[in-house]
Design a protein around this nucleic acid. Structure first.
Length: 554
RNA sequence: AGUUCUAUGGUGUAAAGGUAGCACAACUGAUUUUGGUUCAGUUAGUCUAGGUUCGAAUCCUGGUAGAACUACCA
């Protein structure tokens, strides 16, 4: 095994372990259940769970559910499903809402210490007195209420005596602090809202900053890993832990992972779903874990992707091509091959007896000796791919054209003798003759042909719907373009082929089954696919060096 | 403008004062009954100016560029 270098978090952890600061580590993955997880979260999951695995520690799954108005059980379930699908199992399942009582007591403790006060200011007044990047803020009129008064008011807030927004509880820190978050941050607000777990038990809810660090502390999280935008929150995180005198968890930040040709913010993804630019959170064009799953990605490929992109502290946009490489690499090894004709044109083998059928053996996966083989029926009339024929081919075109020879995969070598066109000039039928002595596995023809194409026997082929997906956006970074990111949606991100043909061997494909359609790409039976109406999603195309060549030729 | 963070080929990521490496992408060529796979190879990088040092991507100073922070969101 070659030695892999450590990322900055592994270095920190190994330092802590060797110094004896900790004997074991404890991480956590803390999603807010207000949306589906995406590939960026997948990287974070791999990081947190991966670190725990690597250093024989623990990793919790904790739902950060402090804002009842945006959070739903549906999201909780999808998140648990996604984490497990990726191949991870949490040590403990927790909810921040498990700690509401404890968090409330922490707030009371702060009031007792004279470090928190109830403020009646409106949010406008609070914003005005906050100051700005260059100017210090000013103290609230309510900042010097007595401890008793604060205690009573906070109790009344909890009892539901005040409407939403009437009062908040604030930490008393420093209104002139250069870090705006330290200027008496709000720690509790009133929300008469139904919570997905605690129901109507509470009408005050802690803010993120007053919940996250303490939750980490309660769970004895040693390494609380989050993304860079929380870096300024660390001061607060530490302040609360210090004032409350509780287990000192520590926060470490890394740069969130971005992917080219997509958007990653939950807000934007939600917008795509709500405004029906996609069919749902698990639309195969979405960068969500559920979308990638439906698209045909494997957990292995996503974990490998996360490993490969690594982790650091600088802004980044990873080329989606790397994700595609990871899924091709995995599927090449594990996906059985099959033939499908997406854009069919008829080919007749004029010297092949009418009514005759042969059963040809086809290997399922040349990369896997144990994959076995299947039978593919052959007959006089075949479907081939329209793009595999050119009326006047260039020198580099190794497929069919007048007088040209190719091999039919697993079958015979054929020569093109003739073809028919309709009034519009479209090819309607191709006539070929076959060389009986060139049969695969028993070839005595001594002929070498440059091209091999896939095909399907007309009477035996089954129909299927095939969905071709392309990137959702036309530009690398839709969020950094001018105007609305939705202006950059790729109008051709989905192409549906309702009447493609597939091998009879695929008639019983089950939702989630993955195949390589020879020369076309990797495909996955959609979740809604049935034997009566088979639907395949294209996960990713094969590398296409001919496509590049053809482009060069114009 | 204040605070904080970051800067290595096209992209992502290593090198803890000592040969700038790996992966993807791109490009050659070989192999191939998938123009796939595999194999061999090529191109291409330390933001900038000083300083310390025998020696700097790494340490120091100044610049430049990008990002984050002024939600009763997380």
């Amino acid at each position: 095994m070659e030695e892999r270098s450590l990322n900055f978090l592994e270095e920190i952890i190994e330092g802590h372990l060797s110094e004896g600061k900790y004997t074991s580590i404890h991480t956590r993955f803390p999603p807010e259940p207000n949306g589906y997880l995406h590939i960026g979260h997948a990287a974070s999951i791999c990081l947190n769970f991966g670190l725990a695995l690597k250093y024989k520690g623990k990793c919790n799954l904790r739902f950060d559910d402090t804002n009842p108005v945006t959070e739903e059980t549906e999201y909780v379930e999808s998140i648990m499903n996604d984490v497990q699908w990726l191949g991870f199992q949490w040590d403990e399942l927790r909810y921040t809402s498990d700690y509401f009582e404890q968090l409330h007591d922490f707030a009371v403790k702060l009031i007792h210490k004279g470090l928190a006060y109830v403020d009646d200011s409106s949010s406008e007044e609070m914003a005005a007195s906050k100051g700005d990047l260059n100017r210090p803020g000013t103290n609230s009129l309510y900042r010097d209420r007595t401890m008793e008064e604060n205690l009573q008011l906070f109790r009344e807030m909890r009892e539901g005596k005040y409407p939403d927004g009437a009062k908040v509880l604030r930490a008393k820190i420093d209104m002139a602090h250069p870090n705006l978050l330290m200027r008496d941050p709000i720690i509790y607000r009133i929300k008469h809202a139904h919570h997905h777990r605690t129901g109507n038990q509470w009408c005050i809810y802690p803010m993120y900053d007053f919940a996250h660090g303490q939750s980490d502390s309660i769970e004895h999280i040693t390494h609380s890993i989050c993304t860079l935008e929380f870096i300024h929150h660390r001061a607060l995180y530490d302040w609360f832990i210090e004032q409350l005198e509780i287990f000192p968890s520590h926060q470490y930040e890394f740069a969130r992972r971005n992917l080219s040709y997509t958007v990653m913010s939950k807000r934007k993804l939600l917008q795509l779903v709500n405004e029906k630019h996609v069919e749902g959170w698990d639309d195969p064009r979405m960068p969500t874990i559920s979308g990638l799953r439906r698209r045909g990605y494997t957990p292995e490929s996503i974990r490998n992707f996360a490993d490969t992109i690594g982790i650091a502290k600088r802004e980044n946009i990873t080329d989606v091509g790397l994700l595609e490489f990871c899924i091709r690499e995995h599927l090449n090894k594990v996906a059985n091959r099959a033939m499908a004709v997406l854009d069919p044109v008829k080919l007749v083998i004029t010297n092949y007896p009418e009514g005759q059928t042969e059963e040809l053996e086809a290997e399922n996966n040349p990369e896997d000796e144990n994959a076995g083989s299947r039978i593919v029926p052959f007959s006089r009339e075949l479907w081939i791919e329209r793009e595999d024929f050119m009326e006047s081919p260039s020198k580099k075109f190794f497929r069919l054209g007048p007088g040209l020879m190719v091999r039919l995969k697993y079958a015979y070598i054929i020569r093109c003798d003739d073809f028919k066109k309709d009034e519009q000039g479209n090819i309607t039928e191709i006539h070929c003759s076959y060389l009986p002595e060139s049969k695969s596995g028993a070839d005595s023809s001594n002929l070498k042909v440059k091209g091999t194409i896939h095909w399907l026997s007309v009477p035996h082929a089954r129909t299927a719907e095939i969905r071709l997906y392309d990137r959702l956006f036309r530009v690398e970074n839709p969020s950094s373009e001018e105007g609305d990111f939705k202006d950059y949606i790729n109008p051709d991100s989905l192409q549906v082929l309702p009447n493609a043909y597939i091998e009879p061997a695929l008639a019983n494909a089950q939702p989630g089954d993955r195949y390589q359609f020879l020369r076309k790409g990797y495909f996955c039976a959609d979740k809604n696919s049935t034997p009566d109406h088979l639907v395949f999603n294209r996960t990713v195309g094969l590398k296409d060096s001919w496509g590049k060549e053809a482009k060069k030729e114009g």
